[in-house]
């Protein structure tokens, strides 16, 4: 299944970028992956078990994406670190 594979690739890339602390890219990839997964669940025949696993995993990705979003927002607002003389 092409879309499922694409979704898995995106999620795996997201996790990689997340670990590499490229949080903006990771956020984008998690959101993209979830879109693909939901499309697969909705329009492409999957077993119930597979659908459940995908939905559960999507919830995890969205949760992580939310944390990344919060972090990026805080970081943007935070003043630059003062430099010690």
């Amino acid at each position: 299944n092409n879309n499922l594979q694409k979704a898995i690739d995106l999620a795996s890339k997201a996790a990689q970028e997340d670990k590499a602390e490229n949080y903006e890219e990771a956020l984008r990839l998690y959101q993209h992956a979830v879109q693909y997964f939901l499309h697969v669940v909705k329009y492409e025949a999957q077993g119930d078990k597979a659908k459940q696993s995908i939905r559960a995993k999507c919830a995890e990705y969205l949760d992580r994406a939310e944390k990344l979003k919060e972090y990026l927002k805080k970081k943007e607002k935070a003043p630059a670190k003062p430099v010690k003389e």
């Binding site: 999620a11 996790a15 602390e21 077993g47 696993s53 995908i54 990705y61 990344l68 935070a78 670190k81």
Partner: peptide, 21 residues
């Protein structure tokens, strides 16, 4: 049955995000 196989879905990293001062 087809489509009921366990899916290997990538895990979310467990690392905490850095603190923003």
């Amino acid at each position: 049955t087809q489509g009921d196989a366990d899916l290997e879905l990538p895990e979310v990293p467990e690392e905490e995000l850095p603190e923003v001062p």
